[in-house]
């Protein structure tokens, strides 16, 4: 908080806590956990994508060079 923000009163602090509690109560699910591995555990979609891209790049690197037509 900025230094010029006045100290909150007890009632204000209570209201803030109530608001945060209300927000938590009304919160929805975490729908980012949608991908799972074969073991049923959630997987990190970004990590999977990174791994796929890395695998593709490695495959590209190991592929024989394409000969240009004369």
């Amino acid at each position: 908080m900025s230094t010029n923000i006045p100290e909150l009163s007890t009632e204000q602090k209570l209201l803030l806590r109530l608001y945060e509690a209300l927000r938590d109560q009304l919160r929805g699910p975490d729908v980012r956990r949608i991908n799972r591995g074969d073991d049923g555990q959630p997987t990190d979609r970004r990590a999977v994508r990174t791994a796929v891209v890395a695998e593709a790049m490695e495959a590209d690197a190991q592929a024989p060079p394409v000969e240009e037509e004369a």
Binding site: M1, Q12, L15, L16, Y19
Partner: peptide
């Protein structure tokens, strides 16, 4: 919160614009 009179008094109005949730 408004319906519950949370901001009905002047002293609580700053909660709406001071840094916080």
């Amino acid at each position: 919160m408004i319906e519950a009179r949370a901001f009905d008094i002047t002293a609580n109005a700053p909660l709406l614009y001071l840094p916080g949730p």
